[in-house]
Amino acid sequence: MVNSFTFGQYIPGNSLVHSLDPRTKLFCVVIMMTAVLAVNTFIGVMITALFTGIFLVLTRVPVTIYLRGMRPLIILVVITAAFQLFLIPGEVLWRWWVFSITDNGIKMAALMSYRLFMVFVLAQLLTVTTSPLQLTDGLERILRPLARVGFPAHELAMIMTIALRFIPVFFEEGSKIILAQVSRGADFQGGWLKSARNLVAIMVPLFVRAFRRADDLALAMESRCYTGGEGRTRLHEIAMSRMDYLVMAATAALVPFIIVFRN
């Protein structure tokens, strides 16, 4: 478990970024992602890179963690860059057979790689410093005004909380079912048709049990006085502090710069 590290896994900590309100972080990440996708000049790139860099340092999570999370995505970045490199027309600098590299191609390849890379880094910045529960809380609070027009904000957040809780449970159950079938002679090797058929044999019992669990859980929740979102309070009531507004203001200040340095 220690060695398997997944993209954007939450790393507990008490840095400035960790302690920010999840809503602040959502706001900043959305602004910065937009900025990164909008920039197209060298100065713009430098400004967004610097800004993201400051944020990363403030998380006090080692940069290697972010880079390790990026590993499976490198191939995507490389493919995107290759497409840009060879397919953008412009002044030809180098040619071999049907491949040609142009000055615009290089520029676009670099820019697209930068954008993709930054989007992934920013996504990680959010999820590495915010626990899934906080993130859910933040989303619920952002969506709460929409509840007045009938949008199920609380229900969505509750569904996410429960889903997060049960992912490891189903994982364990899935591997138990596989083991049970293997021990009775099931063969999980073979072509895709066979694997598809095997998958059915795993998914059906998994689903049946999931429904039974859902029934039990509903009873347990009702027994613990659950009546929906109304009148509910939270153990960790999220609240915006002065620091949150400061960070949001600083991020918002990025917007005019991006507009100015765009061409």
């Binding site: 899934p132 529960l133 809780r165 449970v169 039990d216 509910r232 939270r234």
Partner: peptide
């Protein structure tokens, strides 16, 4: 397993009192 609601122990124990609308 079928009666724990949240993915963190303290959040789960808090579920009932939260439903009662008690102060944090």
């Amino acid at each position: 397993d079928n009666q724990l609601v949240a993915g963190i122990v303290e959040e789960d124990v808090a579920f009932g009192p939260e439903n009662l609308g008690l102060p944090p």
